[in-house]
Design a protein around this nucleic acid. Sequence first.
DNA 1: CAGTATCCTGGCCGATACTG
DNA 2: CAGTATCGGCCAGGATACTG
Lengths: 126, 126
Amino acid sequence: MVIKQYSGAPEDADLTRADSLAREIFSDIANKWAFLIIELLDDRTLRFSELRREVEGISHKMLTQNLRMLERYGLVERCVHPTVPPRVEYTLTEPGRALRETVSGMCDWTHQYLGHIEAARRRFDG
Amino acid sequence: MVIKQYSGAPEDADLTRADSLAREIFSDIANKWAFLIIELLDDRTLRFSELRREVEGISHKMLTQNLRMLERYGLVERCVHPTVPPRVEYTLTEPGRALRETVSGMCDWTHQYLGHIEAARRRFDG
DNA sequence: CAGTATCCTGGCCGATACTG
DNA sequence: CAGTATCGGCCAGGATACTG
Protein backbone atom coordinates (compact mmCIF):
# COMPACT_ATOMS: atom_id res chain seq x y z
CA MET A 1 0.00 0.00 0.00
CA VAL A 2 1.30 3.36 -1.06
CA ILE A 3 1.59 6.40 1.14
CA LYS A 4 -1.31 8.11 -0.55
CA GLN A 5 -1.24 11.70 -1.61
CA TYR A 6 -4.13 14.06 -1.04
CA SER A 7 -5.91 14.55 -4.37
CA GLY A 8 -7.74 17.66 -3.30
CA ALA A 9 -11.04 16.09 -4.38
CA PRO A 10 -13.90 16.82 -1.95
CA GLU A 11 -14.90 13.17 -1.66
CA ASP A 12 -11.48 12.44 -0.24
CA ALA A 13 -12.24 14.50 2.83
CA ASP A 14 -12.25 11.43 5.09
CA LEU A 15 -9.08 10.04 3.64
CA THR A 16 -7.25 13.30 3.95
CA ARG A 17 -6.67 13.30 7.68
CA ALA A 18 -5.49 9.71 7.81
CA ASP A 19 -3.34 10.18 4.73
CA SER A 20 -1.64 13.32 5.82
CA LEU A 21 -0.99 11.70 9.17
CA ALA A 22 0.48 8.64 7.46
CA ARG A 23 2.67 10.86 5.35
CA GLU A 24 3.81 12.82 8.38
CA ILE A 25 4.73 9.69 10.31
CA PHE A 26 6.43 8.20 7.30
CA SER A 27 8.48 11.33 6.71
CA ASP A 28 9.51 11.60 10.33
CA ILE A 29 10.53 8.00 10.77
CA ALA A 30 12.23 7.44 7.43
CA ASN A 31 15.52 8.96 8.51
CA LYS A 32 18.84 7.36 9.22
CA TRP A 33 19.07 8.15 12.92
CA ALA A 34 15.65 6.73 13.75
CA PHE A 35 16.47 3.61 11.77
CA LEU A 36 19.85 3.13 13.41
CA ILE A 37 18.37 3.60 16.88
CA ILE A 38 15.61 1.08 16.20
CA GLU A 39 18.04 -1.42 14.72
CA LEU A 40 20.53 -1.12 17.58
CA LEU A 41 17.90 -1.14 20.28
CA ASP A 42 16.74 -4.47 18.93
CA ASP A 43 15.14 -6.39 21.77
CA ARG A 44 17.48 -4.97 24.35
CA THR A 45 17.02 -2.35 27.02
CA LEU A 46 19.57 0.40 26.77
CA ARG A 47 20.38 3.51 28.70
CA PHE A 48 20.75 6.90 27.07
CA SER A 49 24.51 6.84 27.39
CA GLU A 50 24.71 3.33 26.01
CA LEU A 51 22.73 4.32 22.95
CA ARG A 52 24.92 7.37 22.60
CA ARG A 53 27.95 5.11 22.50
CA GLU A 54 26.48 2.49 20.17
CA VAL A 55 24.92 4.74 17.57
CA GLU A 56 28.20 5.97 16.21
CA GLY A 57 28.38 9.55 15.13
CA ILE A 58 25.11 10.67 16.65
CA SER A 59 25.22 13.84 18.71
CA HIS A 60 23.68 14.24 22.13
CA LYS A 61 21.04 16.50 20.68
CA MET A 62 20.09 14.27 17.76
CA LEU A 63 19.76 11.28 20.05
CA THR A 64 17.46 13.17 22.41
CA GLN A 65 15.33 14.51 19.56
CA ASN A 66 14.95 11.16 17.88
CA LEU A 67 14.18 9.33 21.13
CA ARG A 68 11.48 11.90 21.93
CA MET A 69 10.02 11.50 18.48
CA LEU A 70 10.02 7.71 18.75
CA GLU A 71 8.50 7.91 22.20
CA ARG A 72 5.83 10.31 21.00
CA TYR A 73 4.79 7.88 18.28
CA GLY A 74 4.83 5.05 20.78
CA LEU A 75 7.68 3.11 19.19
CA VAL A 76 9.93 3.38 22.19
CA GLU A 77 9.18 3.13 25.87
CA ARG A 78 11.04 5.36 28.26
CA CYS A 79 11.56 4.10 31.79
CA VAL A 80 12.93 6.49 34.41
CA HIS A 81 14.44 5.05 37.58
CA PRO A 82 14.19 7.56 40.44
CA THR A 83 17.76 7.11 41.57
CA VAL A 84 20.77 9.35 41.90
CA PRO A 85 22.27 9.62 39.43
CA PRO A 86 19.22 9.07 37.25
CA ARG A 87 18.94 5.95 35.16
CA VAL A 88 16.75 6.09 32.06
CA GLU A 89 16.16 3.02 29.96
CA TYR A 90 14.74 2.70 26.50
CA THR A 91 12.98 -0.31 24.97
CA LEU A 92 11.13 -0.93 21.76
CA THR A 93 7.37 -1.32 22.12
CA GLU A 94 5.40 -3.81 20.08
CA PRO A 95 4.85 -1.37 17.19
CA GLY A 96 8.54 -0.52 17.41
CA ARG A 97 9.54 -4.16 17.18
CA ALA A 98 7.21 -4.58 14.22
CA LEU A 99 8.91 -1.71 12.43
CA ARG A 100 12.25 -3.16 13.34
CA GLU A 101 11.45 -6.10 11.06
CA THR A 102 11.51 -3.85 8.02
CA VAL A 103 14.49 -1.87 9.23
CA SER A 104 16.39 -5.13 9.61
CA GLY A 105 15.31 -5.99 6.13
CA MET A 106 16.98 -2.86 4.89
CA CYS A 107 20.18 -3.67 6.78
CA ASP A 108 20.22 -7.11 5.20
CA TRP A 109 19.56 -5.59 1.81
CA THR A 110 22.46 -3.19 2.26
CA HIS A 111 24.93 -5.96 3.00
CA GLN A 112 23.52 -8.27 0.36
CA TYR A 113 23.84 -5.73 -2.44
CA LEU A 114 27.01 -4.05 -1.27
CA GLY A 115 28.93 -5.46 -4.23
CA HIS A 116 26.34 -4.42 -6.81
CA ILE A 117 26.14 -0.98 -5.35
CA GLU A 118 29.86 -0.41 -5.15
CA ALA A 119 30.27 -1.55 -8.76
CA ALA A 120 27.40 0.64 -9.95
CA ARG A 121 28.88 3.61 -8.19
CA ARG A 122 32.30 3.09 -9.70
CA ARG A 123 30.69 2.80 -13.13
CA PHE A 124 28.70 5.97 -12.58
CA ASP A 125 31.60 7.98 -11.23
CA GLY A 126 34.05 6.95 -13.92
CA MET B 1 22.48 -7.93 10.51
CA VAL B 2 23.37 -4.61 12.02
CA ILE B 3 24.98 -1.73 10.19
CA LYS B 4 28.26 -2.26 11.96
CA GLN B 5 30.29 0.52 13.45
CA TYR B 6 34.01 0.83 13.06
CA SER B 7 35.62 -0.27 16.29
CA GLY B 8 38.99 1.26 15.53
CA ALA B 9 40.71 -2.06 16.28
CA PRO B 10 43.54 -2.83 13.85
CA GLU B 11 42.21 -6.30 13.08
CA ASP B 12 39.08 -4.68 11.72
CA ALA B 13 41.01 -3.07 8.90
CA ASP B 14 39.33 -5.26 6.27
CA LEU B 15 35.88 -4.74 7.68
CA THR B 16 36.29 -1.03 7.86
CA ARG B 17 35.99 -0.22 4.19
CA ALA B 18 32.94 -2.39 3.66
CA ASP B 19 31.33 -1.14 6.85
CA SER B 20 31.82 2.52 6.20
CA LEU B 21 30.47 1.97 2.71
CA ALA B 22 27.44 0.17 4.12
CA ARG B 23 26.89 2.99 6.55
CA GLU B 24 27.21 5.57 3.81
CA ILE B 25 24.70 3.81 1.57
CA PHE B 26 22.34 3.26 4.46
CA SER B 27 22.50 6.91 5.48
CA ASP B 28 21.94 8.14 1.94
CA ILE B 29 19.04 5.89 1.14
CA ALA B 30 17.20 6.04 4.46
CA ASN B 31 15.47 9.31 3.69
CA LYS B 32 11.86 10.03 2.90
CA TRP B 33 12.28 11.22 -0.67
CA ALA B 34 14.26 8.19 -1.79
CA PHE B 35 11.70 5.94 -0.12
CA LEU B 36 8.73 7.69 -1.69
CA ILE B 37 10.34 7.59 -5.13
CA ILE B 38 11.09 3.89 -4.83
CA GLU B 39 7.60 3.13 -3.58
CA LEU B 40 5.86 5.13 -6.29
CA LEU B 41 8.09 3.89 -9.07
CA ASP B 42 7.04 0.38 -8.14
CA ASP B 43 7.32 -1.77 -11.23
CA ARG B 44 6.34 1.01 -13.54
CA THR B 45 8.35 3.17 -15.92
CA LEU B 46 7.86 6.84 -15.27
CA ARG B 47 9.11 10.05 -16.82
CA PHE B 48 10.72 12.79 -14.81
CA SER B 49 7.62 14.98 -15.00
CA GLU B 50 5.37 12.11 -14.00
CA LEU B 51 7.46 11.42 -10.94
CA ARG B 52 7.44 15.10 -10.17
CA ARG B 53 3.65 15.02 -10.20
CA GLU B 54 3.24 11.82 -8.24
CA VAL B 55 5.73 12.41 -5.46
CA GLU B 56 3.71 15.14 -3.85
CA GLY B 57 5.63 18.02 -2.39
CA ILE B 58 8.99 17.20 -3.89
CA SER B 59 10.81 20.04 -5.58
CA HIS B 60 12.43 19.84 -8.99
CA LYS B 61 15.84 19.95 -7.40
CA MET B 62 15.21 17.29 -4.77
CA LEU B 63 13.80 14.94 -7.38
CA THR B 64 16.86 15.38 -9.58
CA GLN B 65 19.26 14.91 -6.70
CA ASN B 66 17.56 11.79 -5.42
CA LEU B 67 17.22 10.25 -8.87
CA ARG B 68 20.94 10.83 -9.46
CA MET B 69 21.77 9.27 -6.14
CA LEU B 70 19.58 6.25 -6.82
CA GLU B 71 21.05 5.91 -10.30
CA ARG B 72 24.56 6.15 -8.92
CA TYR B 73 23.91 3.29 -6.52
CA GLY B 74 22.32 1.30 -9.33
CA LEU B 75 18.80 1.23 -7.86
CA VAL B 76 17.25 3.09 -10.75
CA GLU B 77 17.86 2.88 -14.45
CA ARG B 78 17.75 6.03 -16.52
CA CYS B 79 16.72 5.69 -20.15
CA VAL B 80 17.11 8.72 -22.42
CA HIS B 81 15.17 8.78 -25.68
CA PRO B 82 16.95 10.97 -28.25
CA THR B 83 13.84 12.83 -29.29
CA VAL B 84 12.71 16.43 -29.29
CA PRO B 85 11.56 17.23 -26.76
CA PRO B 86 13.62 14.80 -24.74
CA ARG B 87 11.94 11.89 -23.01
CA VAL B 88 13.67 10.37 -20.01
CA GLU B 89 12.27 7.33 -18.27
CA TYR B 90 13.12 5.83 -14.92
CA THR B 91 12.72 2.22 -13.81
CA LEU B 92 13.74 0.28 -10.73
CA THR B 93 16.59 -2.17 -11.27
CA GLU B 94 16.64 -5.56 -9.59
CA PRO B 95 18.42 -4.24 -6.47
CA GLY B 96 15.93 -1.38 -6.48
CA ARG B 97 12.98 -3.75 -6.61
CA ALA B 98 14.52 -5.77 -3.81
CA LEU B 99 14.74 -2.69 -1.64
CA ARG B 100 11.21 -1.79 -2.60
CA GLU B 101 10.07 -4.88 -0.70
CA THR B 102 11.23 -3.41 2.57
CA VAL B 103 9.98 0.06 1.70
CA SER B 104 6.57 -1.41 1.03
CA GLY B 105 6.83 -3.15 4.35
CA MET B 106 7.25 0.21 6.00
CA CYS B 107 4.25 1.63 4.14
CA ASP B 108 2.15 -1.29 5.31
CA TRP B 109 3.44 -0.84 8.82
CA THR B 110 2.49 2.84 8.76
CA HIS B 111 -1.09 2.12 7.81
CA GLN B 112 -1.37 -0.84 10.11
CA TYR B 113 -0.28 1.07 13.20
CA LEU B 114 -1.82 4.41 12.34
CA GLY B 115 -4.30 4.04 15.18
CA HIS B 116 -1.69 3.06 17.77
CA ILE B 117 0.52 5.90 16.70
CA GLU B 118 -2.17 8.54 16.70
CA ALA B 119 -3.27 7.46 20.16
CA ALA B 120 0.28 7.41 21.50
CA ARG B 121 0.88 10.85 20.14
CA ARG B 122 -2.26 12.25 21.69
CA ARG B 123 -1.27 10.70 25.01
CA PHE B 124 2.22 12.14 24.75
CA ASP B 125 1.08 15.62 23.75
CA GLY B 126 -1.61 15.90 26.39
C1' DC C 1 23.69 10.56 34.23
C1' DA C 2 19.90 12.48 31.66
C1' DG C 3 18.00 16.32 29.87
C1' DT C 4 17.12 21.33 28.48
C1' DA C 5 18.50 25.72 26.61
C1' DT C 6 21.19 28.84 23.88
C1' DC C 7 24.02 30.23 20.34
C1' DC C 8 25.87 29.93 15.77
C1' DT C 9 27.23 28.18 11.40
C1' DG C 10 27.35 25.09 7.25
C1' DG C 11 24.65 23.42 4.04
C1' DC C 12 19.95 21.97 2.69
C1' DC C 13 16.60 23.13 -0.27
C1' DG C 14 13.35 26.20 -2.78
C1' DA C 15 13.09 29.69 -6.42
C1' DT C 16 14.61 31.29 -10.53
C1' DA C 17 16.91 31.65 -14.79
C1' DC C 18 19.11 29.52 -18.50
C1' DT C 19 20.71 25.53 -22.06
C1' DG C 20 19.91 21.65 -25.44
C1' DC D 1 10.77 18.29 -21.44
C1' DA D 2 14.85 17.31 -18.80
C1' DG D 3 18.59 19.08 -16.71
C1' DT D 4 22.28 22.34 -14.71
C1' DA D 5 23.65 26.53 -12.28
C1' DT D 6 23.31 30.10 -9.11
C1' DC D 7 21.65 32.74 -5.30
C1' DG D 8 19.87 33.26 -0.74
C1' DG D 9 16.97 32.28 3.43
C1' DC D 10 16.42 29.39 6.84
C1' DC D 11 16.89 25.63 9.73
C1' DA D 12 19.16 21.28 10.94
C1' DG D 13 22.26 20.11 13.91
C1' DG D 14 26.90 20.58 16.54
C1' DA D 15 29.14 22.74 20.60
C1' DT D 16 28.71 24.39 24.95
C1' DA D 17 26.96 25.53 29.35
C1' DC D 18 23.78 24.73 32.89
C1' DT D 19 19.97 22.10 36.02
C1' DG D 20 18.11 18.21 38.88
